[in-house]
Amino acid sequence: MAQFTIKDLARELGVSPSTVSRALRDHPDISRATKRRVTEAAELHNYHPNQLAQSLQKRRSNVIGVIVPEIRHNFFSTVISGIEEVAYEHGYTIMVCQSNETLAREVINTQALVSNRVAGLLIAISSETVNHDHLAGVLRQGVPLVQFDRVVEELDTGKVVVDDYRAAYGAVIHLAEAGYRRIGHLAGREGIVLNRRRFEGYRDGLRDAGLALEEKFHISGGYREEDGRAGADAYLALDELPDAILAINDPVAVGVFTRFREAGVRIPDDVALVGFSGTPAAALIEPALTTVYQPAFEMGRTAVSLLMKQFDAEDGTFVPETVVLDTELLIRGSSARRVG
């Protein structure tokens, strides 16, 4: 006879599995009456949590660890808000760490969270993370792990991403249709999947628009505003400027914008500019920044929901899945159609 599961309990009581789970953990959002019904039904059916649930109760806390490259980046702070909302609904709290875009700090954060017996771990890797032994170690210890935005493809975990290739491709096609011909790409650091896919979308967009990829206009850097300023300086040192630039994200695009303005380069008259993220700041500069909108809040909600699926899975039944969220190109003044 099959063991009675949390889903069976939920079905019998007419509530969700997460409500049963929270009731059994005495979560304050669950009424006393519901807790009593759940407890009585569990006793009646001799229900016992599966091994994963037992390990969460006995050896781990009701805290979910979250590691992001930077909290100050609006994209990641919005992801965190989405994570917190769903985590709270399921009776969990979150503990957030930032790697500050360094592998060393990411490793330390990972070890600290696992040592504190977090129930599971959510992570967007740093720009330096080309070695992922520390994350493989998390999986070996049986700690549930979900990656989001910046991920390691080789790790067999849940993943939540956007179609970076398609988004970058669409941005380049937009620029080409607006009349721009020398389109550059201010990229992130090499070795990160996200960067490679955006570059491939950029490259193929140029090809399909009948435009050349000029190596001097493809510059690698980081993810911060100061990296955008440095990239702008690199463009200013060339014998000619590109007439449009696709930046790896909005902070980098804003850095390019401010440095070009200081140098007397007009946007979009001299150089059009497109960012990536859809942060609120993109709409505040003048002209407003064209950007690829990423659903950050939904990314956070989805990532923690995948983690909850892993918590609730029966032993041996969990299969990691990759969720690809839609993006939208928000066309604004920084990439206005070229005249003449």
Rank of each mutant, 00 (worst) to 15 (best):
T5K: 01
K7F: 14
L9N: 00
E12N: 13
G14V: 03
P17F: 09
S18D: 01
S18P: 01
V20H: 02
V20A: 04
L24S: 02
P28Y: 07
D29N: 15
S31R: 09
S31G: 11
K35R: 07
A41G: 07
Y47C: 02
N62Y: 10
V63H: 04
I64C: 04
E70R: 15
E70T: 14
R72C: 13
F75Q: 07
S81Q: 11
E84W: 11
Y88H: 12
H90I: 04
G91E: 14
Y92V: 07
E101T: 08
L103D: 08
A104L: 11
A104T: 09
E106L: 05
I108D: 12
N109W: 03
N109A: 10
N116V: 08
R117Q: 07
R117S: 11
V118K: 05
V118H: 01
L122I: 09
L122Q: 02
A124Q: 11
S126Y: 02
N131Q: 13
A136M: 14
A136P: 10
V138S: 04
V138I: 11
L139I: 15
L139E: 13
G142T: 06
F148T: 06
V151P: 00
V152S: 11
E153D: 15
L155C: 12
T157R: 10
V161I: 12
V161M: 09
V162D: 00
A167G: 06
A167V: 04
A168I: 03
Y169F: 02
V172L: 12
A176V: 01
A178D: 12
Y180K: 10
H185N: 01
G191V: 10
I192A: 14
V193A: 14
F199Y: 14
R203V: 03
D204N: 03
L213Q: 12
I219D: 02
D227C: 02
A234M: 07
E240N: 08
L241H: 02
I245R: 04
I248W: 03
D250A: 01
D250K: 00
V254W: 04
R259N: 00
R261D: 07
E262F: 06
V265S: 07
A281L: 14
A282G: 00
A282T: 00
P287S: 03
L289N: 04
T290Y: 00
F297A: 10
F297R: 13
E298S: 10
E298L: 11
R301N: 08
T302R: 06
T302G: 05
A303V: 08
S305F: 13
K309F: 11
D312G: 12
E314R: 14
E314M: 14
D315K: 14
G316I: 02
F318Y: 13
T322W: 13
T322P: 09
V323W: 06
T327N: 08
E328S: 13
G333A: 02
S334D: 04
S334E: 00
G340K: 12
